[in-house]
Amino acid sequence: MSSEQQSANEMMVTFEHVNKIFNPGSVNEVTLFNDFNLKLRKGNFISVVGSNGSGKTTMLNLLCGSLPIDSGKITVDGEDITRLKEFERAGFIGRVYQDPSAGTCPELTIMENLALADNKGGSFLLQRGINRQRRDYYRTLLEQLHMGLEDKLGIQVKSLSGGQRQALALLIATMTPLKLLILDEHTAALDPKSAETVMELTQQVVEEKNVTTLMVTHNLKFAADYGNRLFMMHRGNVVFDVMDEAKRSISIKDLTARFDEISIEDGN
């Protein structure tokens, strides 16, 4: 096996020469990604930081298929997924959004939400929607959250708090086996206490499932404390990238300094 092939086998995600232009040909034309390249190693937990509009969410949208790329190639686990639709990619990608109401069905009960996620990848025909025998399993899952949700299986998700919903969304996103976990500022809408809780829970899930995780956050403390790789984005480019040893020694102060450098370059 050539060394190139070997390194390809170790990659969970690759972006190869990806281009993305918004509103091409109009006055609002924005060239966000111009020959963007990125490799994410299997089993890594990567934190992504960057100022507003630097392209973090767009990068995730391109990876998940919520937005099409103009040209280039994206692979996951060695497979070219560029042509796969968003719902097809969702089969092996779990995603938690910034908006706590995005990752769950507000009108459905906790039980119904979990039952849907439990059947992910299976057939959705005329079988009974909720399997009562799974009830105990759902309860043990919810008990891990320490939010008392295990006694509220029958209530609608819309009556939960943002933190509770986000914890549930995390549970739902990771219920079935997956290759990639995508977190887009998933603690941003939560109060500091709930954010901590959800972040600890995230760490726990990631370790337990040993899933490659890409987490975008504006919380520099989380970015520094969690994960084994960190990179900063700026205008559609990776401008700062540290791993393992270098990542462990990074502090919030270093990160803030980096942000300042960038904004000086921008002339602000």
């Binding site: 719902f87 089969g91 995005a102 769950t104 507000p106 849907l116 992910k120």
Partner: peptide
């Protein structure tokens, strides 16, 4: 209730 949720479950 939430179309995006259904997409996340791998369904069209």
């Amino acid at each position: 209730s939430n179309e995006r949720f259904v997409v996340s479950q791998g369904k069209d």
